[in-house]
């Protein structure tokens, strides 16, 4: 039987809590780093088709800024911190003190890009170390990589493992927002955590729930 057919709503609730702990720590780190209030939405853990996954950050062709990494250890998978260009520019301006930073502008970009990379490092590091502490599982993130490209092209790397089992993936999503940014849809960051299919067993086991119950 396909692993996804064993996943029930209790499992999804546990994964949601998993996301809550990780993203909660990341939000605190972001808030400290930017000295701004950061609002975190309640995470979701969902079983999504690949095409639905593409719609989760504005469509496959949407240009986004992403800090991506591979997770190795007792749990394996992929993690993506995805931002709109506008939101990334705002974070970078905040960190570098250069209010004019723009990805499309003519100005010097390398400082901004490395600030963005470092922001991704810190956030994904705090997310994953919180998960490791909580589950007592060994989780080793790879060096995160910055990409500015189409969302579909980026996120499809997180679907490769799942795609060997079917046409669905389990994704734990958390949205972070600057409180002051108001209600514009563009100003937010998404965390996508996509554990590999074989990692659900160890995750549930570590949390005291079998995949077969």
């Amino acid at each position: 039987m396909n692993y996804i057919e064993k996943i029930n709503t209790t499992h999804l609730d546990i994964l949601k809590e998993f996301g809550n702990i990780g993203a909660g720590h990341a939000a605190t780190a972001l808030s400290t780093l930017l000295n701004k209030q950061i609002d975190m939405k309640v995470p979701s853990a969902r079983i999504v088709s690949f095409n639905d996954m593409m719609e989760m950050a504005g469509g496959a062709e949407q240009e986004v800024v992403s800090v991506s990494l591979r997770i190795e250890g007792e749990v394996t998978g992929n993690m993506f911190f995805v931002l709109s260009l506008q939101q990334a520019e705002s974070f970078i301006s905040n960190m570098t003190g250069n209010p004019a930073f723009s990805f499309k502008g003519a100005g010097e970009q390398s400082i901004g890009l490395s600030a963005m990379q470092e922001l991704g490092n810190i956030l994904s590091g705090s997310y994953l170390s919180a998960l490791g502490d909580f589950t007592h599982l060994q989780i080793y993130p790879s060096v995160p990589e910055l990409a500015i490209d189409m969302f579909g092209a980026i996120i499809s790397y997180g679907l490769v493992e799942s795609s060997q089992y079917g046409d669905y993936a389990i994704v734990i999503e958390t949205i972070l927002k600057e409180v002051e940014a108001g209600h514009t849809d563009e100003m937010k960051g998404h965390f996508f955590l996509l554990p590999d299919p074989l990692s659900f067993g160890p995750i549930f086991e570590a949390l005291g729930v079998g995949l077969y119950e």
Binding site: M54, G59, A60, E61, D149, M150, F151, G152, A153, I154, S156, Y157, V160
Partner: peptide, 8 residues
């Protein structure tokens, strides 16, 4: 048309 080809 197909959109957002990465490794695909």
């Amino acid at each position: 048309r197909t959109s957002g080809l990465g490794s695909c």
